[in-house]
Design a protein around this nucleic acid. Structure first.
Length: 592
RNA sequence: GCGCCCGUAGCUCAGUUGGAUAGAGCGGCGGACUCCGGAUCCGCAGGCCGAAGGUUCAAAUCCUUUCGGGCGCACCA
């Protein structure tokens, strides 16, 4: 079984289970994260001090201090309240600390230190019990429900159907897909969409380029590819696939303006190819939206009329302009070009207008929020699109646009040249072939979306300790192996309720338990910040904690009760690694 | 010229809506259990967080200026 098929099957299983528990309604398998609990407790305590009112309470921030002596969690709320009210921070901190309900907040002790930090030490018993909870929750551990079923769309990749997908699209695919998974894990109804631009001059050029290749094959003379056309080898391959009979027919129909038959044919094949590459990458879309449908349905014209009604359009030099400069853009934008030909004819709509129409369409489909993931070459378009959303009267935060930065492919120290025009670029499918799906996805998700990424193919290919991808997967495989070893040794695993988790008190065990309990909060943060890299870095940390534990302590071979507790602990680790990797679309293998 | 993004260890990058002593991986050097997977673990070296001011109890993080890099600035898509 290939890696991606196993991922696919796992993904289906997970989806079914989520649907199942959502359907159960009352079953409270979605829990508050420990940080939610602490936030609530600190908030209550702060209000009870009487130093601050409900309305003026600053947001409660719970953080994990770096230094060990500063507790498992800490809050700076006292200093914020103090600076607001003129009180002394230490005194406010003392007042909050003394009013903290330790039982409900699952705390062993609370200390005030430094300028007014309230440091909280989580109850060991609660840490231990959480491991049991993880196994009870299984796939659902780390799922939250603050999305409350809100309908959200993420549109990503949306490459022109003029060639195979490149590595920037690959990164966008990894990010968008992971975002969808994160949103779903947080209780949103998330839908993925690919806008395919099967309309306009790019497509015409594609058709003419293909036609040139077909002619080249028939005549043997070098192809006369249009100036701005597509020169990639893939069109030669495509030309070869067209039987000579079909080719003759298509050439005959093409005429001198030509190309549209070829264009239609090429576009369909390109879309098909892109879809296949994405599927191989483990990314499938809920909807492939065709730009041409906006034109054929009259949606673009309707949008123009709507904009006119909004009062944000005016005519100048025969063209129709949108007053985006009044809504945050640096200048106004043309939505309808001045007529190219005869007097009185209506001008063509611009690409911008059809993009506005597309977003209007999204809004009318009922999405409560829309997230667009764009390439860096489009970042200049953000203000005009936001301006359009405002002109149409959509809520200010309805449209969110993320820019995925460039990927620089490296072979060791040498950058790989990437020229799309010349057709020299590494495609998604080549990337998958070279480094594998798991590796590619993990690498793309290791960095912040908005920062440049160096992707070292040499490093990614190496199946050794130099490769960060395997570190996390190895942790998962190792746990599987321990469990298998125990089974082979005739160990009978006790029931979840029977294990005595209070035996887990070694530093490495407690460190693992702390990592495990923070997982749900990491999911929340990654989702809210649209930062999948928080999950990769969390998993790396969890794997480190596990490897350290493993190196220092025996599971199989420990005193029987302790062994049972450690088996449970280790199974909890496995569950969380698996859940986390699933959010990235990376497989969690039992053997490597 | 204008706008947006980015400057953190030799390299690639984290750094929790401003928090306590700035971290990881790779690379370099030196080590590790006769035993559950050595794709692991431990230690050492390596930093004026591009620079200069400012805001405050607290700045890698916020503001201003400046230097260096990327990307945009069409009646193209």
């Amino acid at each position: 079984m290939t890696t991606w098929t196993s991922w696919f099957i796992y993904s289906i299983a997970r989806h079914v289970s989520i649907t199942h528990w959502r359907g159960c309604g009352e079953t409270p398998r979605v829990r508050e994260s420990i940080v939610d609990i602490l936030r609530g407790a600190v908030r209550d305590a702060a209000l009870r001090t009487g130093h601050v009112q409900e309305g003026s309470l600053p947001p409660v921030v719970i953080e994990e201090p770096r230094a060990a002596g500063h507790g498992d969690f800490s809050t700076n709320i006292a200093m914020l309240v103090a600076s607001q009210s003129g009180l002394k921070a230490r005194e406010v901190a003392e007042a909050i600390a003394s009013r903290l309900d330790r039982t409900s907040a699952k705390l062993d002790r609370v200390e005030v230190e430094g300028p007014g930090f309230v440091n909280m030490f989580i109850s060991k018993a609660h840490l231990q019990e959480n491991a049991r909870q993880i196994l009870q929750d299984g796939d659902a551990y780390g799922t939250l429900n603050f999305g409350k079923g809100s309908l959200v769309q993420v549109e990503f990749v949306s490459a022109n159907p003029t060639g195979p997908l490149n590595v920037v699209s690959a990164r966008a695919a990894a990010v968008g897909d992971s975002l969808i998974r994160l949103l779903k894990a947080c209780g949103f109804e998330a839908r993925s969409e690919f806008l395919t631009n099967d309309h306009g001059t790019q497509v015409e050029l594609l058709g003419r380029s293909l036609q040139a290749r077909v002619e080249e094959l028939r005549s043997g003379r070098p192809a006369e590819i249009p100036e701005e056309g597509y020169r990639g080898e893939y069109l030669v391959d495509l030309a070869r696939e067209i039987s000579s009979e079909t080719a003759l027919q298509m050439l005959a129909e093409a005429g001198k303006a030509g190309g549209s038959k070829f264009a239609k044919f090429a576009v369909e094949r390109m879309i098909e190819g892109q879809r296949k590459d994405l599927t191989d990458f483990g990314v499938s879309f809920d909807n492939w939206f065709r730009e041409s449908s906006l034109h054929s349905s009259g949606y673009v014209e309707e949008t123009l009329a709507t904009l006119r009604d909004s009062g944000f359009l005016y005519e100048k030099d025969g063209a129709e302009w949108f007053k985006s400069s009044e809504l945050g853009d640096e200048q106004d934008r043309v939505v309808r070009k001045s007529p190219a030909g005869q007097e009185g004819a209506a001008g063509e709509p611009t690409y911008f207008l059809s993009d506005v129409a597309y977003h209007r369409n999204k809004f009318e489909r009922g999405f409560e929020r829309v997230i667009d993931i764009w390439g860096p070459d489009h970042h200049g378009h953000v203000p005009r699109m936001q301006a359009a959303a405002r002109a149409l009267g959509y809520p200010p935060d309805w449209l969110e646009i993320l820019i995925v930065q460039w990927v620089r492919l490296m072979r060791g120290k040498e950058p790989v040249s990437m020229s799309k025009r010349a057709g020299e670029f590494v495609t998604l499918s080549e990337l998958i072939k070279e480094v594998g799906v798991d590796c590619a996805r993990f690498f793309f998700l290791m960095r912040k979306v908005n920062s440049h990424l160096d992707f070292d193919l040499e490093l990614a290919k190496r199946q050794s300790d130099e490769n960060p991808v395997y570190y996390v997967q190895y942790g998962h495989a190792r746990v599987s192996s321990v469990i298998e070893f125990a089974r082979e040794g005739g160990v009978e695993m006790c029931g979840l309720e029977e294990a005595d988790l209070s035996l887990l008190s070694q530093p490495e065990e407690l460190s693992l338990l702390r990592h495990l309990i923070c997982y749900p909060e990491q999911v929340r943060a990654a989702c809210l910040g649209r930062e999948p890299q928080k999950i990769t870095s969390y998993l790396t940390g969890l794997a480190t904690a596990f490897h350290q534990f493993y190196h220092n302590h025996r599971v199989v071979g420990a005193e029987p009760n302790l062994m049972q507790s450690r088996l449970l602990l280790v199974r909890a680790v496995k569950t969380v690694i698996k859940n986390g990797l699933d959010l990235l679309g990376v497989s969690a293998p039992d053997k490597m």
